[in-house]
C-alpha cells in the first residue's frame, strides 16, 4: 500500500490507469527481447541503477535470472573478473548516465559501441532511461 492507493506493487499501481497500463507494459517488455543488447546485460545495468538509487525495491526485483556471483559483486564490478568486457563497458556508461548524461564521454560511448554496435548503444541508452525512470517513480510512490 502506498500513499495514494491501496495497491501493493508498482505494476498494480500502474494498472490504476487502465488507459495507459497496456501500452506501458508493452513498451517495458520490448526491452527484454532485443537483438542488440542481451537481457542479462540489461538486467545488470538495471540492478546497478537500483544500487545507485539505494532502491531496495528495485534491487529485490528479478527481471532476468543472473548468477549469484554477478549479483553479489555488482557494487565492485570494476575490480571483478566475473564480468565480460561488454558488461564492464555498459556498467561504466550506466554510472555516468545516472550522475549526469551530459558528462558521458565519447570514449565511454565508443567502448559500448565497440561491444554492441550503434544499435546496442541506442538500446542501452533507452533502457537506462526506462530503468532510471522506473526506479525514481517507485521511490516517489514510497517503495
Amino acid at each position: 500500500m502506498t500513499w495514494f492507493t491501496e495497491a501493493n506493487t508498482q505494476q498494480d499501481i500502474i494498472d490504476k490507469a487502465p488507459t495507459l497500463a497496456p501500452t506501458f507494459k508493452a513498451f517495458y517488455d520490448s526491452f527484454w527481447q532485443l537483438s542488440s543488447a542481451p537481457p542479462s546485460l540489461l538486467e545488470l545495468c538495471r540492478l546497478r541503477v537500483a544500487q545507485l538509487h539505494q532502491s531496495d525495491y528495485q534491487w529485490q526485483h528479478q527481471q532476468i535470472e543472473l548468477s549469484t556471483e554477478k549479483r553479489q559483486s555488482l557494487s565492485q564490478w570494476s575490480k571483478s573478473a566475473v564480468y565480460t568486457d561488454a558488461e564492464k563497458a555498459c556498467l561504466a556508461f550506466t554510472e555516468v548516465y545516472c550522475m549526469d548524461p551530459q558528462a558521458i564521454t565519447d570514449a565511454q560511448a565508443e567502448a559500448v559501441k565497440s561491444e554492441l554496435g550503434d544499435a546496442g548503444l541506442v538500446a542501452l541508452i533507452e533502457a537506462l532511461g526506462l530503468f532510471y525512470g522506473m526506479t525514481r517513480v517507485s521511490q516517489l510512490w514510497g517503495f
Binding site: T19, L20, T23, F24, A26, F27, D29, S30, F31, Q33, L34, S35, S36, D118, A119, V122, A123, E126
Partner: peptide
C-alpha cells in the same frame, strides 16, 4: 536502429 522498441514506444507515447 532499435527496431523492437519503436512501435511500442510510439504507442505508449500516443497514449500518454
Amino acid at each position: 536502429l532499435v527496431t523492437e522498441t519503436v512501435d511500442p514506444y510510439l504507442r505508449f507515447n500516443h497514449a500518454i
